[in-house]
Design a protein around this nucleic acid. Structure first.
Length: 586
RNA sequence: CGGGAUGUAGCGCAGCUUGGUUAGCGCGCCUCGUUCGGGACGAGGAGGCCGCCGGUUCGAAUCCGGCCAUCCCGACCA
């Protein structure tokens, strides 16, 4: 294939588009791979699909290799299956809903669990048919609250989603492992760096879930890693529990007048001024911060929950949310405070909390709050705090919860060193669904004893368009795009940098030779352009090997430049073809 | 959803405060000529519902009101 810039449908931009912020996205727009069509929607120009299709092909090959079979559902679906699974309601505002001319509800699918489940239910009814893995590569729709970062968080995007079906947990584990191996092979081939992080704490019945994150500062997901190789989603970090402390010599708890100290900061400052410690200053970590939230349950109803964390940390809503699922964490409003007079805003303390207390309000604390720890905390009276309140002596929480934010330097749960917070792009997610959808949609098969058993499922996703973006973001440099060869739109970019007909003819001949050898070529055969423009465009487009046919042609050489390293070498014209073919196949 | 901003040619922007010729600049595009190894130069061109609706006014890109859209920060995000 020879792409001639003289007629390729592309126009490179000299200025950065105003609405692009990430370097890779900016370069893709400037180089003419994609354009914004609307918020979270993108048009692909000819260069874009050349990259996209190579990514897609690698994903497809690895799925086929592991034995998954490709199917294809509509992106537009009727309401009914989602009604049956409960997700018509559950999915909320993120679901694109629309009506047909008869007023019937439809949706643009954000993911296809229901359809896969129902399809298998329609066709299969025996354990002999399993295990089975099906996949599709499909446009997905999510009405994101805030689309951003170009292809990374779009409202229309392409995802490979697959689902495994097994009769038992051992089968599911095997299918999961197959997908995990296939994903490793896929991302290795794509040239994407990744870390595999545990995405759940295991509090949800032991089902496994792991995310493939591509580490980059522009990523939207936060994860942690340790020097010893531990890596996890922040939601999954388990806090090591300290040993209990002796509290024999801790004075009796005493309430003090602490006016105008509704925040940890004001409290610490006040305590240091009026109740100085003998040994050191009071610190935020000496205080116990009690945060009250409302839990809303799917089946209806709201109950308050108070979470106690050391005062130097905030409650991480995402971590808390992961712990209380399927309940939803909601803010505690002023009306809620009015309805629960035991809770004094800014001065909440454990003495009035607990399921066995008068208030009956559930009280969970950070795992660091162990027996014997002494705290400065709210006295449940406006302007008052209690000092030397000892856990296990003066109060007993209902339990612990992993809700405190994870901080840089916290110890890894497996003892592999201090955690480092890092950012990444979620490029893949593998998940043991279990029987959620099989139960909801009655997917059962007969086992070898003739008994009906509910199938257990896994779901596995790779963001294909997002992977393109992730590659761009992690390879782009100050000159432009810099594609890995296996996904580049072409192998060689031939620049005719001369002014005479001789360089033009030599460039044509070289391009034709490469094409005949099966090497894809971008040929800059545009007329009347200064060499500088051609060089800039070649670098912006990001084809891995650039050949300059120019002033050195009179010496019988062309220049071969590696886009990534910038290294140039002179190659005799007579050897250029063989040299380039070797470079592209190495 | 909270906060902040923006909407003027394909792209990037000025003009608006203080209303008044034919709405301007750079890039890109067309023609001619000169250039030709790091986004060349000259001359001449094409291209605009100034986001939409309404109001004020003799007159609105400019002032006022409403709406819509988009972007950024945050919240949210299997």
């Amino acid at each position: 294939m020879i792409l001639r810039l003289s007629n390729l449908f592309v126009r490179t931009l000299r200025d950065d588009p105003a609405d692009a912020e990430l370097p890779g996205h900016t370069a893709m727009v400037r180089a003419g791979y994609i354009r914004r069509a609307g918020s979270g929607m993108h048009t692909w120009l000819p260069l874009g699909p050349l990259v996209y299709r190579k990514v897609e092909a690698i994903v497809r090959e690895e799925m086929d290799r592991m034995g998954a079979q490709e199917v294809h559902f509509p992106a537009l679906l009727p309401r009914e299956p989602y009604e049956l699974s409960g997700r018509w309601e559950e999915y909320g505002a993120t679901l694109f809903r629309l009506q047909d001319r008869r007023g019937n509800d439809h949706l643009l699918a954000p993911t296809h669990e229901e359809m896969f489940t129902l399809l298998v239910k329609d066709l299969y009814s025996s354990y002999k048919d399993l295990p089975l893995s099906l996949y599709q590569i499909q446009i997905k729709y999510r009405d994101e609250a805030r689309p951003r970062a170009g292809l990374l968080r779009a409202r229309e995007f392409v995802m490979k989603d697959s689902y495994s079906f097994d009769v038992d947990d051992e089968g599911l584990e095997a299918s999961y492992q197959q997908h995990r191996d296939a994903y490793i092979a896929t991302f290795d081939r794509l040239g994407l760096h990744y870390v595999i992080v545990s995405a759940m704490s295991g509090a949800m019945g032991g089902s496994r879930s792991e995310e493939f994150l591509c580490p980059t500062p522009v990523g939207e997901d936060t994860f942690v890693r340790s020097p010893g190789g531990y890596a996890a989603n922040v939601e999954a970090v388990v806090t090591p529990v300290p040993d209990p402390l002796s509290y024999d010599d801790v004075p009796v708890a005493h309430v003090e007048d602490t006016p105008d100290t509704p925040t940890i900061e004001t409290l610490v400052a006040f305590a240091n001024e009026h109740f100085p410690r003998g040994d050191r200053h009071w610190e935020a970590a000496d205080t116990l911060k009690n945060v009250v939230v409302m839990l809303r349950y799917l089946e209806g109803g709201r109950t308050p929950l108070v979470v106690g964390v050391p005062g130097d940390r905030d409650v991480d809503t995402k971590r808390l949310q992961a712990q209380v699922e399927p309940a939803v964490v909601e803010p505690f409003t002023d009306e809620d405070f009015a309805a629960h007079p035991a809770l004094v805003k800014g001065y909440i303390g454990p003495q009035v909390l607990g399921e066995d207390s008068a208030s009956g309000i559930r009280y969970l604390v950070d795992p660091r709050v162990v027996e014997g720890t002494r705290w400065v905390t709210g006295a449940n009276r406006h302007g008052h705090h209690v000092f030397d309140l000892v856990c296990g002596r003066d109060f007993t929480p209902d339990g612990t919860v992993e809700a405190a934010e994870v901080l840089d330097g916290d110890p890894a749960p497996d003892g592999s060193g201090p955690l480092e917070l890092a950012r990444g792009i979620e490029i893949g997610h593998i998940f043991q669904l279990g029987r959620k959808y099989a139960d909801a949609l009655a997917l059962q098969v007969l086992d070898q004893h003739g008994k009906l058993v509910t199938v257990t499922m896994g779901s596995y996703g790779i963001g294909v368009s997002r992977a393109v973006a992730a590659i761009a973001e992690t390879t782009v440099d100050e000159l432009g795009l810099c594609w890995p060869r296996q996904v580049a739109p072409a192998d060689v970019h031939v620049v005719n940098a001369g002014k005479g007909e001789d360089t033009g003819a030599a460039a044509e001949e070289l391009a034709a030779g490469l094409d005949a050898a099966g090497v894809d070529v971008v040929l800059d055969d545009r007329a009347k352009l200064s060499p500088g423009v051609r060089f800039k465009d070649a670098e912006l487009l990001g084809v891995p090997t650039i050949v300059i046919v120019g002033k050195r042609l009179v010496d019988g050489v062309v220049e071969v430049k590696d886009r990534r390293t910038g290294e140039r070498e002179d190659v005799a014209v007579a050897e250029a073809l063989d040299h380039l073919i070797a470079v592209c196949r190495s």
